[in-house]
Write a protein that binds this DNA or RNA. Sequence first.
DNA 1: AACAAGACCTGCATGC
DNA 2: TGCATGCAGGTCTTGT
Length: 279
Amino acid sequence: MPELPEVETVRRALAARLVGRRLTGVEARRPDLRKALPRDLATRLVGRKITGIERRAKYLLLNLDDGHVLIAHLGMSGRMLLYRKPPPPGPHDHVILGVDDGTVVYFNDARRFGLMTLADQSELDRHPLLKDLGVEPLGPGFNAQYLRKALKNRVTSIKAVLLDQHVIAGLGNIYASEALFRAGISPRRRARSLSPDRLARLATAIRAVLNEAIAAGGSTLRDHRQPDGELGYFQHNFTVYGREGEACPGCNCNVAATGGIKRIVQAGRATFYCPRRQR
DNA sequence: AACAAGACCTGCATGC
DNA sequence: TGCATGCAGGTCTTGT
């Protein structure tokens, strides 16, 4: 499911219900996620108060009152679901967290590409999962100049680089295609060949599409749910993603003549674009 | 160092 | 209906 907007949507909903609450019950039902759950996860969590919930790239960071951080990643299919009255747990409900006002959180992840682990707050910057991440695209360090430096030696396609979490932390496959469309840049172009002008347009497009997607609660194709069970709605605003063969909304070209939006595969991932509007 | 390809795991849509 | 195939929002590892 989740790229930055989906994770941010989940973060906000969890923060509203869980910050200031104390964990009263923790059940690790299935430890073999992408990374094995810590054996003592439940012991270390019960009794702790959640003091804040942050996001770094696609990671959720739950700060605890003992100086530890619960790091969670949703992988491709992960959900965090909030309940007042939880249903009987299903086969993909891997971790269950209960807090002191009766709220229960299910960490559900059919494909088990997600993970949960504990880290020291004071060493978070050096944590193996986080230490090599690039800038936050919605943060102050992200602009055309950053991109110019980061892409200087990159000979691969701009699309592949946008997915590189060492460069931009949190952008994923959907929003990379959407941002390139908005910026009018071909996903096949070599990263280092982009002019400063076009990099500025790209940075603006990335920020805009991410902010709009967050405002819509993210995109639900299959798996994404907001923690209250609500869907995301930004998929209705996709201009190119998943729209192979459809008319490009940005040019007046005749679909029958041009083939419309094209789907290609780059670095093993599907890319969607309009070959006429994106150069 | 940078890059491409494969691996991880499950569910779903499609086609025969 | 059943079965095979391909595909999916991500990341990590391996080999070049």
